[in-house]
Computed example of a mutant assay.
Amino acid sequence: MFLTYAVVTVVTIAANAVEAVANLMKARFVVANAAEVGVPPSWLPVLGALKGAGAVGLLLGLLGVGFIGTAAAIGLVLFFIGAVVAHIRARVFHNIAFAGAFLALAAASLVLVLAVGR
């Protein structure tokens, strides 16, 4: 079970780290997606920092600081629920799968961190 937790969490960390950097750099695709769902460009650094904090927290959880990993997973689940809701409210469905995939990764990390008891 630990191996599954580790693999899923590493994938979640990598995905969120890449997204955090893209948000902080205001990558073209991030700015376009944010505009479609009604998120102001001024929010992108904060959203990037939250994703980055989630990735760092998950890493700390993998390294043995279990309560931080659990808190990070919960935070990312809540963050991506918000992202999915933003897509639904804006009726932007052509790329909602990305937000859904990030939500699924965060949820899987949360379930697995709870299952392994870290």
Rank of each mutant, 00 (worst) to 15 (best):
H87T: 03
A49F: 15
R89I: 04
A22H: 08
F79C: 01
L59T: 13
V84E: 02
V37D: 11
L63Y: 12
L60Q: 11
L47P: 04
I74Y: 11
V21S: 00
A72T: 01
R89L: 08
A49C: 05
A71M: 03
F93K: 10
L62N: 03
F93E: 12
A99W: 09
T70I: 14
T12Q: 00
V37Q: 09
V46C: 05
L78K: 12
A101G: 09
A90C: 08
G64A: 09
L62H: 03
A73V: 11
V39K: 06
N33W: 06
A14W: 08
A35R: 04
A90P: 00
L50G: 05
G100R: 10
W43T: 04
F98T: 06
I81R: 00
A55E: 14
I13H: 06
A27W: 13
V77C: 02
G66N: 05
G66D: 07
A72G: 02
G75P: 02
S42F: 08
M25S: 10
A97V: 09
L62G: 05
N95L: 06
A101E: 02
G57I: 14
G52W: 01
A86N: 02
A15Q: 10
L59P: 15
A72K: 01
A55W: 07
A106Y: 00
L47C: 08
V31P: 00
V21C: 04
H94N: 15
A106T: 07
A104H: 14
V77R: 00
A34K: 00
L112W: 13
